[in-house]
Design a binder for these strands. Sequence first.
DNA 1: AATGCTATATACTCACCAGTAAAACAACAA
DNA 2: TTGTTGTTTTACTGGTGAGTATATAGCATT
Lengths: 205, 205
Amino acid sequence: MSASPSPFRSAKQREADRQAKKQALLEAAVRMFNTRGYHATSLDDVAASLGVSKPTIYHYLGNKENVLSECLRIGLKQLLQAASDARATSGNAAQRLHRFLVGYAKVNLSEFGRCVIRTPDEALGAENLESLLTLKRRVHAAMCDFLKEGMSDGSIAPCDANLMAFTLAGALNWPARWYDPDAGHDPYKTVDAMVENLATGFLPR
Amino acid sequence: MSASPSPFRSAKQREADRQAKKQALLEAAVRMFNTRGYHATSLDDVAASLGVSKPTIYHYLGNKENVLSECLRIGLKQLLQAASDARATSGNAAQRLHRFLVGYAKVNLSEFGRCVIRTPDEALGAENLESLLTLKRRVHAAMCDFLKEGMSDGSIAPCDANLMAFTLAGALNWPARWYDPDAGHDPYKTVDAMVENLATGFLPR
DNA sequence: AATGCTATATACTCACCAGTAAAACAACAA
DNA sequence: TTGTTGTTTTACTGGTGAGTATATAGCATT
């Protein structure tokens, strides 16, 4: 864990350095994409925010659209992870869905998750779009599966799973547009209350 | 109602012409904003889609951001209209809220409504943003009012009205991102089912 | 030392696009 | 007719930003 005593880094360490730099570039980029929007963000500015120059970004990431698509891939992977984490928990399907929704909402408040929500499909070229849509569909399918399973075990009310999944996802995506992480609210509480609203509806029971 | 027999139009008719042209420009612009995104849309292209040239747009609308803000204002006015339409109907607050939500969702599937949802705040300059945020807040407040009224008359379950309003709005905003009007589905049915999902929740009753 | 590979910078090109200037044109008014 | 006002075009300016050519410095391998 401590720094290597030798100033000569091994091949492994150099590769780790490279990955760390790439990651730092993606994090700087995603933050700027989220605050200014993809088109309004210049790679010059992203580079400057880390004290390097634009060609460095091209060295690590090829081109602007690829920077974006890497960010989106990270966010979507996190969403899929939230699904499999929830799937592995105990209880009935409604309880597992509940845990997934909370995890889903939290990812959507992180930088990479917000980027997934805020970036419209048209920002991407056809090739990237296709593979990213596949990931998005996988997330949607995961949510549908929780719902269908719950309809089987009776823990979820009968409904059109596809439409319900869009309803739930839409509600939990929206904070990516209005939630201000610096405003002092506890995101955990907010998310939990939203999921509760979705679970029980606005009509009295 | 018929065309005037004289080729000489009155001042009133000329003013109406002017408004019709302005409206046509806004409609062409909003369609392109929705399909390509604001930044990726050039006013040259918008003009060309109507067979005119860019300075014509500047003649009627001043500048690009103003084109956008006029579109947003139209969409937001439609949302406020949906609120006051629903407010004027009979029944308990939950029923009026239900009607508002359906109207709200429908507006969000129209071009101007979609533009409201799809346009992130950062696309606007400070002056425009402020007045548009006021309108957005008014829509949100209207939704909160329905909820509070319903909690008073017992037709809506006790909840944090503010958060519930964001939950409902988020769910009904999202179709502006995924709904394909050309895909043959009946928007009325879709919207109705979504509102039903929100009313009763995903847990069995 | 020589050679090459990785990382980074400077300084450019090129395209696109918001916005404007100036003129042409159209409709009406005197 | 001539002037006036409103509409629209052609042809431009200026800025911005993606992407690249090229140079350089450092480390690595022989």
